[in-house]
């Protein structure tokens, strides 16, 4: 069943089609949710809320882009709302207003690790860094867009991203070093 057919069947309320839509995108979307949260349970909560929204607003999908991208956008929005709503994330989601760009340390880091390992490292970042890094580096939003989404200035977004990135690079290098030492030893 192609995407158009699948969407139409879902709109008709057919349970089989709804299940198929879920099966087709759930794993990918849980990966998205996982990067924004600190625990798998929270990621599943976001996924749950996100899919309920998907079915609720499926009639607004105009087939203008891939269905996966549309669902992914919903998941990201849901994740951001989740972070704002829950106090354990809210306290960690404070962005300082230092507009000065944080200098990025020159490095030659390469991502030589599995997706899961990288995702785990991203989740180790403070929530503010983590969110902006995900939005810019992974989802591809501009800093202006991120600023409007999070209610911060684009300068803040840039500085937060730079810090997150340098921190992540240092962790990646450290991890790669440990791996190399392990294999060398």
């Amino acid at each position: 069943m192609d995407e158009r057919q699948l969407v139409k069947s879902c709109l008709k309320g057919k349970p089989a089609a709804q299940k198929e839509l879920y099966d087709r995108f759930a794993e990918q979307m849980l990966g998205v949710c996982y990067r924004y949260t600190k625990s798998l349970a929270d990621a599943e909560d976001v996924l749950q809320d996100g899919f309920v929204k998907v079915y609720r607003f499926l009639h607004t999908y105009q087939f203008e882009g891939p269905l996966g991208a549309w669902i992914r956008r919903i998941m990201v929005t849901t994740a951001l709302n989740f972070l704002k709503k829950h106090s354990r994330y809210r306290t960690d989601l404070s962005f300082d207003n230092n507009d000065a760009l944080h200098p990025v340390v020159e490095n030659d880091a390469e991502v030589r690790m599995t997706a899961r390992e990288l995702a785990e490292l991203i989740r180790q970042l403070p929530t503010g860094y983590q969110t902006i890094f995900n939005l810019h580096a992974v989802e591809g939003f501009t800093h202006v867009e991120i600023g409007s989404m999070l209610g911060i200035s684009d300068g803040t977004s840039r500085s937060q991203y730079a810090r997150a990135r340098s921190l992540l690079i240092s962790w990646v290098e450290k991890k790669s070093q440990i791996k190399n030492d392990h294999y060398a030893g």
Partner: peptide, 29 residues
């Protein structure tokens, strides 16, 4: 180099998948 790092992250995260537990669908349904 920076761009390569970003690209590498994007690629890795694009293929990142996690299977959700069964109750998630039950609750959604």
């Amino acid at each position: 180099r920076d761009n390569e790092f970003d690209k590498g992250v994007q690629e890795k995260m694009g293929e990142f998948r996690l299977p959700p537990s069964a109750p998630v669908w039950m609750e959604v349904e």
